[in-house]
């Protein structure tokens, strides 16, 4: 996992440089940690692919919005946004990933379902409402980044569809999430 995280940090940093986003090194490290914990398997593969083909991407100055750039692919492989307990605030470190998705969706016109999920604590129907709020927080970011409202459907599963079994902080943290499904 440590190697994975480093790869992800490198990848995220590269993307940030290419996009010209000025952020501090501290924020980049947080992004690395999230990517490593989140879509781990996908990130590893795509990071390797990105490393292999990155020079080609740099050599092509022509914009081709229909095709995913390999670096973009690394971010697009991440599909999960995590939340704090009883919160629907999207952390800054999820923004590059969401912007990458928004860019892809806006240029391809693809439809997306944004799912909202919660941990098992709290009552079931409250969690349906909280999951809805989480999915909507992600929806708003996609809208602000050029995706049209008609492309986005949201659904809340509350605590009904955990990503991790278990009844501890680790399981809860991975269950408090929003997933981008397309």
């Amino acid at each position: 996992m440590r190697i994975l995280s480093k790869l992800s940090v490198a990848l995220v940093s590269a993307v940030l440089l290419l996009n010209g986003c000025g952020t501090t090194g501290e924020a980049e490290q947080e992004q690395g940690a999230v990517a490593g914990g989140g879509a781990a398997a996908g990130t590893a593969e795509d990071a390797a692919a990105a490393a292999a083909t990155a020079p080609t991407a740099e050599a092509q100055p022509v914009e081709q919005p229909k095709e995913r750039s390999p670096l973009e692919e690394g971010l697009l492989a991440q599909r999960v946004v995590y939340f704090d307990f009883d919160s629907s605030v999207v952390h800054d470190d999820a923004m590059p990933m969401l912007r990458a998705h928004a860019q892809y969706l806006a240029s391809n016109g693809t439809n997306i379902t944004v799912e909202g999920h919660c941990d098992e604590r709290g009552t079931r129907e409250y969690n349906i409402a909280l999951g809805e709020r989480r999915a909507d927080a992600v929806r708003r970011i996609l809208l602000a980044n050029g995706v049209s409202a008609s492309q986005i459907k949201i659904v809340s599963y509350g605590e009904e569809r955990p990503a991790a079994l278990g009844h501890d902080e680790q399981a809860w943290a991975s269950n408090r999430r929003s997933e981008l499904m397309y």
């Binding site: 129907e125 349906i128 809805e132 909507d136 708003r140 809340s156």
Partner: peptide
């Protein structure tokens, strides 16, 4: 929106429920 949390009125003529729209219930 999307609906959940049904509750029958005591006379059975009405149903209270939650409507979820734009992140607000």
């Amino acid at each position: 929106g999307r609906q959940s949390s049904p509750a029958w009125s005591p006379d059975g003529k009405k149903l209270a429920f939650t409507n979820h729209k734009d992140g607000n219930a």
